[in-house]
Amino acid sequence: MNRSELGAALRALRQASEKEAKAVARSAVMSTSKLSKIENGHTAPTVGDVERILTAIGVSEAVKAEYMAAARAEATEATAWRLYRRLGFHRKQQQIRALDATMGLMRLFQPSLIPGLLQTPEYARAVFARKDLTEEQLSRAVSGRLDRQRVLYDAGKDLRFVITEPVLRWELVPAPMMAGQLDRLISVSRLPNVDVRVVPLAGCHADVPGHSFVIRDDRSVTVETVHAELIVTDPRDIATYVSKFDGFAGEGLSGDAMRVMVESIREGFLREQETP
């Protein structure tokens, strides 16, 4: 089965399951019209689309593996951010939450921002405010991101974060809010299934940060660029990202050493607040 045949094959699976399109679309976090376009070959499904549809239908692992292999036939997919704006960033957050629900291990590298799963409401609002949204769109996007954070408390998930020191110092929000954001990071780092590491500026480094990326299990890598989101599924490319993540994780401070560093930066923000 090639990728062009996926739509019709997914429709056949759904019909065989006797599940209505509306119910499958709702579980797959997409509109019924989008599912219809996929099933009729008018819209090419992404790897994430196919996985969510198969999960919603409830197919066996063997069938799922076959269909996912076809979905991954193209090693890299790109979706422009303007398309997500049209969809609604709150819907995008729902899609990510559905993707997170199927993973066991997440490895996230972030050299630019506090990772979304660790953001406070104020910080998340500042991140989405850069996207020129209406107040309603902004509120729904922030709410969607905060709702995703429930995955942090799922003991069945292994969540690993590596961020660089400049992320902690970049004042995307006023100093008091940055102090609160760092408090949040420290608090989450104490969860038993969460590992937060910070790569310090000091010292000699073997690699350069580049850009952020998220590895879910060993199945896919999500990369955010200025204009688009990329989904990488070729095992060789995934291995490259795993190697990069492991390299920075090895250089990062963790545990109490990390928390002492973050607390020191937090105190700097509090002093800045007190400066007349």
Score class of each variant (00 low, 15 high):
Met1Asp: 01
Arg3Ala: 12
Ala9Thr: 10
Leu10Tyr: 05
Leu10Ala: 01
Arg14Thr: 00
Arg14Gln: 04
Ala16Thr: 10
Ser17Met: 00
Ala21Leu: 14
Lys22Trp: 12
Ala25Trp: 09
Ser27Pro: 00
Ala28Leu: 03
Thr32Cys: 11
Ser33Val: 12
Leu35Glu: 03
Glu39Arg: 02
Asn40Trp: 00
Ala44Val: 14
Leu54Glu: 03
Ala56Gly: 11
Ile57Asp: 01
Ile57Cys: 10
Val59Asn: 08
Ala62Trp: 10
Ala62Arg: 15
Ala62Asp: 15
Val63Gly: 07
Val63His: 09
Val63Ala: 15
Lys64Met: 15
Met68Lys: 13
Ala70His: 07
Ala70Asn: 01
Ala73Ser: 15
Glu74Phe: 12
Thr76Ala: 13
Ala78Leu: 12
Ala78Pro: 02
Thr79Asn: 04
Ala80Gly: 05
Trp81Asp: 05
Arg85Lys: 15
Gly88Cys: 06
Phe89Asp: 00
His90Thr: 02
Gln93Lys: 03
Gln94Tyr: 05
Gly104Val: 03
Gln110Cys: 11
Gln110Lys: 00
Gln110His: 08
Pro111Cys: 04
Leu113Met: 13
Leu113Val: 13
Leu113Gly: 00
Ile114Cys: 03
Glu122Ala: 15
Phe128Ile: 08
Asp132His: 09
Asp132Glu: 13
Asp132Tyr: 04
Asp132Trp: 02
Glu135Val: 09
Leu138Ser: 00
Leu138Trp: 07
Gly144Glu: 04
Asp147His: 12
Gln149Trp: 05
Gln149Arg: 03
Leu152Met: 10
Asp154Glu: 12
Asp154Thr: 01
Ala155Tyr: 06
Gly156Val: 02
Phe161Tyr: 14
Val162Trp: 10
Ile163Trp: 05
Glu165Leu: 02
Pro166Tyr: 02
Val167Gly: 04
Arg169Lys: 12
Glu171Ala: 14
Met177Trp: 11
Gly180Trp: 12
Leu182Asp: 06
Leu185Thr: 09
Val188Ile: 15
Arg190Ile: 00
Arg190Tyr: 07
Val194Lys: 11
Val194Asp: 10
Asp195Lys: 12
Val196His: 06
Val196Asn: 08
Val196Glu: 03
Arg197Ile: 03
Val198Gly: 05
His205Thr: 06
His205Met: 08
His205Gly: 05
His205Trp: 07
His205Glu: 03
Asp207Thr: 11
Gly210Pro: 05
Ser212Ile: 00
Ser212Cys: 07
Asp217Val: 07
Asp218Lys: 12
Asp218Asn: 14
Arg219Phe: 13
Val221Leu: 10
Thr222Gly: 14
Val223Arg: 06
Ala228Asp: 15
Leu230Gln: 13
Val232Lys: 07
Ile238Tyr: 06
Tyr241Leu: 05
Val242Tyr: 08
Asp246Leu: 07
Gly247Cys: 11
Gly247Asn: 14
Ala249Ile: 01
Ala249Cys: 04
Glu251Ala: 15
Gly252Glu: 04
Ser254Pro: 00
Gly255Glu: 03
Met258Pro: 04
Met258Arg: 08
Ile265Glu: 05
Glu267Gln: 14
Phe269Pro: 10
Leu270Ile: 11
Leu270Asn: 08
Glu272Leu: 12
Glu274Met: 11
Thr275His: 14
